[in-house]
Computed example of a mutant assay.
Amino acid sequence: MANGSRQAAWEFFGTELKRRREDAGITQVELGARVFVSGGYIGQFEQAIRKPQLDVAQRIDETLQADGIFERLCRKLIDDPRYADYFAGVVELERLASTVYDFEPTVVPGLLQAPTYARALTLATHPFATDEFVEDRVAARVERSGILKDATRPEYWAVVHETVLHVPVGGPGATAETLDHMAALAAERRVLLQVFPFSAGAPANSGSLRLMEFEDAPPTAYTETSFSGSLLDDPAVVKRARRAYDLIRGAALSPEASLALVRSAAEDFRRCTSTT
C-alpha cells in the first residue's frame, strides 16, 4: 500500500472511530479511560496523528461493540510482510516524527545502511530465505531511508557504539560502503552522527534504543532485542528512556571526532579489500 493510500486509510479509521464514539454518546476522555489511554490519545487517533497499537484497537472494538472493525483495519494497515510484526508500527510513526533519536550498539542503524549491508544482515538472520524475500527486505530498508532525503525529513540523531565500526557485515567491502554512506549523510547534515567509544565504558542502555518526537503528539520510545521489540508511550517510561539516551549522547565523541573515526574505519576496511 502506498504511503498516501495508507494515510488515507488511517484517516478513515479516525473518522469511523469518531462517528461510532459519538453515536455511543461517549466522550474522548471516557473512551480513553475504558481502553487505558488518555482522552488526548483518542483525539489523536481520530485525527490520524497517532496510530493505535493492536491491543488498543481491540479494546475500542469491545467498548464500542464495533464487531472487530477497528482490529481488522489496524491489522491491515500495520501488516507489511517486509517488517517484523513488532516493528511495523514503528515504521508508521517514523514517517510522522519531527525528530528521531537512535542508539545502536552492534549494527549500523537501518536508516543509514547501504543495500549491500542490509542484504548481509538479512541473510545472517534468514540463511535459507529466497532471493525474493531478501530483496523485498532490502527494498523496504532503502524505502525507509528515503525519509532522510525528503524535504520534510525529521531531525535525525544517531549514536553508534564503536563496535559497529569494526564488525565486517557482508565483508570488508560492504562495510566500507555503508560507513562511507553514513559519513556522507553526516557530512551533508542529514544526520547528526556520534560514536560511543570503547573508552566510555558501558552505555546507559545495553540494547538498541529509539526515541521519536512529534509536533502534535507525545513522544514514544522503542527498544529492541534480537527477536522482539517494544513500543513504549507511558510518559514515565519515555522519560527514563530519554535520560538513558542523553547519558549515551553525553559520553559519545563529538560529531567532528565521530565523523573522522567513521571515515578512518571505512578506509581500514578498504585496505583489507585491496589486500585480499
Rank of each mutant, 00 (worst) to 15 (best):
residue 134 V to P: 00
residue 26 I to W: 06
residue 139 A to T: 14
residue 41 Y to H: 14
residue 117 Y to Q: 07
residue 166 H to S: 12
residue 111 L to G: 10
residue 7 Q to T: 15
residue 75 R to Q: 14
residue 116 T to D: 14
residue 66 A to H: 08
residue 276 T to D: 12
residue 1 M to E: 08
residue 129 A to L: 05
residue 256 E to T: 05
residue 132 E to R: 04
residue 257 A to F: 01
residue 29 V to D: 15
residue 176 A to Y: 03
residue 108 V to G: 07
residue 54 L to I: 12
residue 274 S to K: 13
residue 186 A to T: 10
residue 274 S to F: 10
residue 60 I to G: 04
residue 189 R to V: 04
residue 91 V to F: 00
residue 83 Y to C: 09
residue 244 A to Q: 10
residue 177 E to D: 04
residue 121 L to P: 06
residue 217 A to N: 08
residue 273 T to P: 03
residue 227 F to R: 02
residue 6 R to E: 12
residue 26 I to H: 05
residue 61 D to Y: 03
residue 164 V to S: 05
residue 223 T to F: 06
residue 58 Q to W: 06
residue 268 D to K: 11
residue 74 C to S: 13
residue 10 W to D: 00
residue 40 G to T: 14
residue 78 I to G: 00
residue 242 R to M: 05
residue 61 D to M: 11
residue 207 G to F: 11
residue 272 C to F: 10
residue 96 L to M: 08
residue 131 D to K: 04
residue 139 A to E: 10
residue 264 S to P: 06
residue 177 E to P: 00
residue 137 R to C: 13
residue 217 A to L: 08
residue 176 A to H: 01
residue 48 A to C: 03
residue 201 G to N: 03
residue 260 A to T: 10
residue 245 Y to I: 02
residue 232 L to G: 13
residue 83 Y to D: 08
residue 150 D to R: 12
residue 22 E to F: 05
